[in-house]
Design a protein around this nucleic acid. Sequence first.
DNA 1: CTCGATGCAAAATTTTTGCAGTCCC
DNA 2: GGGACTGCAAAAATTTTGCATCGAG
Lengths: 163, 163
Amino acid sequence: MMQTAQSPAEDIVKSRASFLDFLGRKGLRTTNQRMAIFEAAFQQTEHFTAEGLLAVARKIDRSVSRATVYRTLPILTESGLVREIDVGLDYKFYLAVRGRQIDKAQVVDIETDRIYEIDAPFLEWYAKSIAEKVGLEVVSQRLQVQGRPIRKPLTEEDACPAK
Amino acid sequence: MMQTAQSPAEDIVKSRASFLDFLGRKGLRTTNQRMAIFEAAFQQTEHFTAEGLLAVARKIDRSVSRATVYRTLPILTESGLVREIDVGLDYKFYLAVRGRQIDKAQVVDIETDRIYEIDAPFLEWYAKSIAEKVGLEVVSQRLQVQGRPIRKPLTEEDACPAK
DNA sequence: CTCGATGCAAAATTTTTGCAGTCCC
DNA sequence: GGGACTGCAAAAATTTTGCATCGAG
């Protein structure tokens, strides 16, 4: 069977080409700021916020402004290179897309606000079966789980830990 | 088999009692404003926003302020009488809880922003199985599906409708 | 050159908060 | 009567927008 996964290095080269292609097809210009924001997004290995992205992008190109970050994020999401993730935490998160991103759920640790992207088998099918009930075709779906670390049942040791 | 569903009239009487009980147990005071907001919430048969709730509550008690609505909504959600629903539409929605509300998904028609509450069998179980993968126990889960009305395959008639 | 793109700061939007006065218990 | 509660308006916080200027094609 063919291996389709790529190394991180190949990954970003391909993504960058894809972004440039997207800009071209849409008649959008290739500016230093847009590229800096793209690079900043793909330097992130985890979820990031608009504000965080601004900070990183500015390290690449000092002239990047907050407004341009907010104007570029929709371009990145429309191109499919970045996913917008809203788990109801006041502000939105974003995530650079690397490889296939289907059937994922977001699990949020409510004690740390950390977001995990977890495989959710059949999620797309499941969403489709639900949308059909109201005669809609699925455009997108998201499953979000808020959780907290499992506390093991208390033992005497836990209740009165030996110092 | 016993029928557990109630008439809308019985429903709100019970909910009102439940709210008063909740206020009492929490040592919160029963004010005209809080009751007006409660009544306004249960007059709604669909999802509502904080701003919409304010408008309706003011028809009941002119003195209700926006601040009190925002301060009362958390009380209503904590009591379990109202559910907060955030589908990523800028502002939050709320829904008066009538009867059991387990395993429901929100299906959002992206052309009208209308929200449907749809049965999602085994959703709770599904979320649990996913949260377990990162060692978290589920506190809550939500499945949201964005969809658009199904467009029937085009016929000649559709493409060139006879005026 | 031309018009899309940018930076800056002000605006917009939803929700929160400080404070003085109100009224429930 | 005391402290919880409220209204008002200002503040917060994130995202959007107007406008003069810049720069990609």
